[in-house]
Design a protein around this nucleic acid. Sequence first.
DNA 1: GGGACTAGCAGGG
DNA 2: TTCCACCCTGCTAGTCCC
Length: 683
Amino acid sequence: MEKNETLSGDKPRPWQSYHTVYTNAKAGMEGVDKEKVQRIVYETSKGSKYFENEEKKEALLRQKIENMRAQSAKLSAADLSHYQTVADRRILELEAMRDLSRIWLHVDMDAFYAAVETLSNPSLKGKPMAVGGLSMISTANYEARRFGVRAAMPGFIARKLCPELIFVPTDFKKYTHYSELTRKVFEKYDPNFMAASLDEAHLDITEVCKERGMSCGEIAEELRKCVNEETGLTCSAGVAPNRLLAKVCSDINKPNGQFVLTNDRMAVMTFISSLPIRKIGGIGKVTEHILRDAFGISTCEEMLQKGGLLCALFSHSTADFFLSVGLGIGKTDTPQVRSRKSISSERTFSATDDETLLYQKLADIAEMLCADMKKGGLCGRTLTLKLKTASFEVRSRAVTSEKYICSSEDILKYASKLLKAELPISLRLMGLRLSHFNEDKIGAPSDPTQKTLNNFIVSGDLSRKNLDDPKSLGLDINDQHLMNNMEGSFSIESHELQHYGIRDPLASNNLEDLNVHHCTSTDSVEAEKIHEPSSNKIADKVITKDMAGEVSQWKESGLSLPGQLEGGSPDRMNQVIMHNEAVFSSEQKDELVWVDDYKCSLCGIEMPPYFDEERQEHSDFHLAERLQKDESRIDSRTSALRQRSVQKDHISSQSKRKKRKPSPKEGGHLSIDMFFAKSNLNF
DNA sequence: GGGACTAGCAGGG
DNA sequence: TTCCACCCTGCTAGTCCC
């Protein structure tokens, strides 16, 4: 956090630079003392792990903004002129696509959950109340909002802001019932209305206005009255030529009000010109911060004025979105089918590193997800494990199965493998998400076996047996899956490992590992037995064994390898290949030849001819192994290996053909980078 | 170059 | 004194195969 100290010698106000969403203008919060809210939020949060993580994220954001400023400053006059032309052309194209023929109405129920609770318990009326608990509140009534209490705020902070705040637990059954009542009303005005959530909907009222000869304002008025009669609740409405603007309009006269923006280009441009960008759906805290601090953009109109810069520094689709915001252009169509893309379940708990407990919680989540999937009759192929560490760092690990899964056993089986690769770890949240549903045409390739990493790896083997097209053999997906499982285990594992960009085993400085790598399968069992998390050295060795086992299990399970194994931890993977290769080295002959120009005669590892550098390294490995053997009784062994290692380091450093994807832990990329910046800016 | 895939994040309710 | 959810969509980068 930056220290804020005024020139006049006022006391420091560090909370002023703590950027929280809780002080943003929201309906019912107009008279709130923002500085007081900011100070209380800051003081309540300060020192917590959450706070520390927020500071980290803020620092990254500031760095990102600095980078964008620097990139912007680097643009020459010619560049700016070029991108201004690009922006002007795109603005013309977007303008040509402007559709003023439809009338959209956005309905937003006023403090929905809180209003429903007050309806069922009138004694709450007039008192500050929030729906939720001490950890998080879902919504607050207008009495509570006057204290700065609002949705998505932790309850303990809300209580600091308003000590007399009443907490009411959420009751989704009740909200769903009232939501259905409102939807029955919406249907009368637009049978194809789009429900955005339990308390929000978009309605195309073009036809109903024509049919009934009423103005859009009259229709909105009538609809709101009807909702109130049916439910006893109030709502607000916005009417505009598109959904983007209608949503902005519904917020203007909240609560229990409405605002109409006419279908006229001039009216739209006037409306949008001074509109703060934060009012637009899709522009949140981070985007607002970047646009304001890096480009000086605060209003929608300024999006157009700085269009050249936006085109130069953001991706095509992002720049397009910004320009259309500047023009007040939004969607006017009604999508025919909106199918869900994924389903997930997640739970927060007290942070723990107890592996038994973590697996138990994972099993619970798998059960919950399975139950939800059964309700929807869904089966999916991609399972994503979401983790939030004790320090609030969020990670996700995904795996794509060759078959569709929906049973809790299958979900847990794959989820456990993903979790295992992350241990040891202290977590406060785990979540499971399944996507690539069976009805998802895009996600269900005709030959799913072709697309997974595992299959690519195995196909190397299959192709040489003319088996790369399972269909040509009359095999279905399951047959192919089975066939993969039946492949000879070691050659494939080795091939896999090579494919993951495994470098020279000698590059490892841990020469002690060489001893471990010669252990037999019996040693493996012993290694498991002596596994002690408190002993790093032993744990490392066991991990080596575990990882080898994991690779085998991954293949057996018919899954592609998780990212963590694939690229995130090359050292660990180095250890795995060292182990496997060393086991085979017991059968080695003196000279290495590539059998069929593919297979190592010494250890059986498979490597295509074009893996020239990897082959060289592999050959060096066997050479080193021979040296080691020859000098096994001489103390100079270690120094010889070190020498080889140094040589190999040199060779490896020149090898850039296959780039390893940096792991997030290595800070290889920044989120905002990925989200916004173009990858190939050539000025 | 396009598609599939993993990983990560922003944003909204 | 300690405490910051859950669920979903959509977009991005990077890697790899075809």
